[in-house]
């Protein structure tokens, strides 16, 4: 695995520059049942295809951003900074 990612702050770098934060999942907004809590903590969709996911520019600006990546081909379709509470990726 040696693809490139474009950090919204720093530009395009080798993937080894970054930390992977996994697929974006929504944190329960109200008190969850034990099953809901378990699913949030431990279950992943693990899609074969395009997925929105967190990345951390560990070797650069040390900021988190969001990428859309095809997990089959590693093609990165877009990267962007998170848009904050209320946005689709918000876990709050």
């Amino acid at each position: 695995m040696s693809f490139l990612l474009t950090c919204p702050n720093c530009g395009t770098r080798e993937v080894t520059d970054f930390g992977f934060g996994g697929e974006i999942s929504a944190r329960p907004t109200a008190r969850p049942s034990l099953r809901e809590l378990g699913e949030y903590n431990y279950f992943r969709r693990n899609v074969a295809g395009v997925q929105r996911e967190w990345w951390f520019h560990r070797s650069g600006c040390r900021a988190w951003f969001i990428a859309e990546r095809d997990t089959v081909t590693n093609e990165v379709l877009l990267t962007e900074l998170p848009r904050g509470p209320g946005s689709p990726e918000s876990v709050a």
Binding site: F56, R62, S90
Partner: peptide, 20 residues
């Protein structure tokens, strides 16, 4: 921990700045 803090901050977008 720095990554953990900045991750939640990226999501919550609070008036907070972190410096390591």
């Amino acid at each position: 921990v720095e990554e953990w803090f900045s991750w939640w901050l990226a999501d919550w977008q609070m008036d907070v700045r972190l410096t390591d």
